[in-house]
Design a protein around this nucleic acid. Structure first.
Length: 467
DNA sequence: TTTTGAGTTGTTCGA
DNA sequence: GTCGAACAACTCAAA
């Protein structure tokens, strides 16, 4: 009997279509390990911590209770586990985010000194970051050339081989130990803001991901049209599953392949996730630095008054119903519809004149699907600091967006409860219609959107003039 | 090397 | 109400 191997779970919390697990289980028993990393968990807000805990619980159940959970520095935990069982090989799905890459480098060196090999394979993407190139051999910097190259790259098909590892059990912490480490580094910026409140989730884990995918397939053909309507269930809702790897994108792509307009639109949305993973791989500094360096000089507001505006935004009290609905959905569910994410982000940057990093931090704290590549680059795109040479005059009008994408006010009235009885179109207007008809319990507009739009254009012009 | 066409998701204004 | 143009140039990718 050869000694066991270790499968170190990270962003791949599933058992099927798992290449590293398949390799790990070829010749011997497998220790399935999850490490509670205090550094990673420190910035994880309570809703995502609950989501992760439930995902790990589901994984543990599907392993017959054999999941080994340990806490501490990854290098030390891995070394200890390998020593306990005499393992000389650790298998992982490669991680491409900056923290994961440097951590893995450190773990690899640490284990090598002990005669243990860290074997990375597969990725959380359909196409491995760094693969797609322009004809000149450079990484694509804008989406469309990336998308062309990405579509021309055929990802490996999902594995349908059944893997039945012989799990090796060891002493393990309870999954709920996670709450001892999660959210210990709450930014001062957040002040007295409430934390996101969602603690239970439908359709978690690998089986949950499959159910979500099945559900989505029944509405795939209307996706192209309906995906921008936040008031109805029209998107895939797969983002948290892709975030934690309870499903792999290649399986999503295989299930949704087709030539219809909607299938193509959905594929391009998956490709955006891949594009941002690729950009982050090539430019790891872009987590907190503008991709367009000149934009670091954009004048943003700071100080106590700016912070109180930030907190009004985060609480969903700007007086702009669509923005407030989105921010309240985020607090209540740990998730927000993508169209509304853009409107809320645009509002923070272009109407409140605050640093995009403030908003990105809040989203990272609150979202159950928070992914550093998609979140930061989505924010940069909206802020005009990102990958495309953003036409800076592109400022979302929060009222017009509400009228266009939530004409009946279904979304707004669902999340902004003081507006629940206010009919459209009043419920879409600043202050919920304002004046004497202002609904009780709702707030007056924090700012005048038309005026602040002009102010944003002035500030963008300043950047252009000084470079 | 130079040139050309294009670039997720928008808004406002005036005809 | 609808529609096209203007917004202000710049970077990127490919020919």
């Amino acid at each position: 009997m050869t000694s066991p191997t270790v499968l170190w779970f990270r962003r791949d919390l599933r058992l099927s279509d798992h290449r590293a697990l398949l390799e790990a289980s070829r010749h011997s028993g497998v220790v399935g390990l999850y490490v509670l990393d205090p550094v990673l968990l420190a910035g994880c807000g309570p809703s995502r911590a609950h989501y992760l805990a439930q995902t790990l619980t589901a994984l543990n159940e599907s392993m017959g209770g054999a999941l080994v959970v340990r806490a501490g520095d990854s290098a030390e935990v891995l070394a200890e586990v390998c020593r306990e069982v005499g393992a000389t090989r650790v298998y992982v799905t490669e991680d491409f985010a900056p923290y994961g890459r440097s951590r893995d480098e450190r773990v690899r060196d640490h284990l090598a000194a002990l005669g243990v090999e860290l074997l990375g394979m597969d990725t959380p993407y359909a196409v491995r970051p760094g693969t797609v190139r322009t004809q000149a051999g450079t990484p694509p910097k804008v989406f469309t050339p990336f998308f062309r190259g990405w579509e021309a790259t055929s990802p490996p098909p999902p594995l349908d081989e059944e893997v039945t590892p012989e799990w090796v059990t060891l002493d393990s912490l309870e999954v709920n130990t996670i709450f001892r480490y999660a959210g210990t580094r709450r930014p001062d910026l957040f002040g007295d803001l409430p934390d996101p409140t969602a603690t239970t989730f439908a359709d978690v884990g690998e089986a949950g991901a499959q159910r979500q995918l099945e559900q989505f397939l029944t509405r795939l053909e209307s996706y192209g049209e309906a995906r921008n309507t936040p008031g109805e269930e029209s998107t895939s809702r797969l983002s948290p599953h892709l975030r934690f790897g309870t499903i792999h994108p290649r399986q999503v792509l295989a299930a949704t392949r087709g030539t219809s307009k909607s299938a193509g639109v959905f594929r391009s949305e998956v490709a955006w996730r891949e594009f941002y993973g690729d950009v982050l791989f090539h430019q790891p500094q872009s987590v907190w630095r503008a991709l367009q360096p000149a934009m670091e000089h954009l004048r943003v507001d700071d100080g106590e008054e700016a912070r109180s505006r930030f907190r009004a935004w985060a609480r969903g009290e700007t007086g702009y119903p669509l923005v407030d609905a989105g921010m309240r959905q985020l607090l209540a569910e740990g998730w927000m519809h993508n169209r509304v994410r853009m409107v809320c982000a645009s509002f923070l940057v272009k109407h409140l004149h605050l640093d995009w990093r403030w908003g990105a931090r809040w989203f990272l704290w609150c979202l159950i699907d928070a992914d550093v590549a998609s979140n930061q680059h989505g924010w940069q795109w909206t802020a005009g600091t990102g990958t495309d040479a953003a036409p800076f005059h592109r400022v979302f009008n929060p009222t017009l967006q509400a009228e266009r994408f939530d004409p009946e006010g279904r979304y707004v009235r669902r999340y902004v409860t003081p507006l629940a009885e206010t009919p459209a179109p009043q419920c879409l207007q600043p202050g919920g219609g304002g004046g004497l008809l202002a609904p009780a319990g709702y707030v007056a507009p924090l700012i005048d959107a038309a005026r602040e739009r002009d102010e944003a254009l002035v500030r963008f012009a300043e950047v252009k003039a000084t470079r």
